[in-house]
Amino acid sequence: MKFGKMKSHRRNRLLLVLLAIAGTGTAVGLVLMALNKNINLFYAPAEIVAGNAPVGETIRAGGMVVNGSVKRGKDLDVSFVISDLKSSEVTVRYSGILPDLFREGQGVIARGVLRDDGVFVADEVLAKHDEKYMPPEVADVLADAHKDKPQAGKTL
């Protein structure tokens, strides 16, 4: 009786460990695969202009919306230019409703795909809900673009 209990105990433990290993293995694989596919890297306008951003992959881009650059097309098509306020500008196309806080002269982040003609086709445009701070990515873009502050990159 006692022996039998021990045995079932040990067998349970073995099965348990195997189960745990199999489960964890699957989960880790799943996570890595998903992370690999679904990480959206952020690119500054300068990187996009320089051709350092991948074409045809989902990425994010951000900068300040250039004053006077927002143009409406037919239906809900809209295009605008984001800039690091230094030298690099990227045209963004989007179709749909822009967020409440989207405004010219504000920092925005767009998620979408870069076309090989250099136009960024966004499927999502984000502006922060709180107006107090600009999106940190955009702040970094602007700080990086600014050559008077070589240290700024450290604060990323």
């Binding site: 300040m64 004053n67 306020l85 107090k132 600009m134 602007l142 700080a143 600014h146």
Partner: peptide
């Protein structure tokens, strides 16, 4: 500083 350019030159994060 309508487009925030001066603020950026100053390294302003917020107000």
């Amino acid at each position: 500083d309508h487009d925030g350019r001066l603020g950026i030159d100053l390294g302003v994060y917020g107000a």
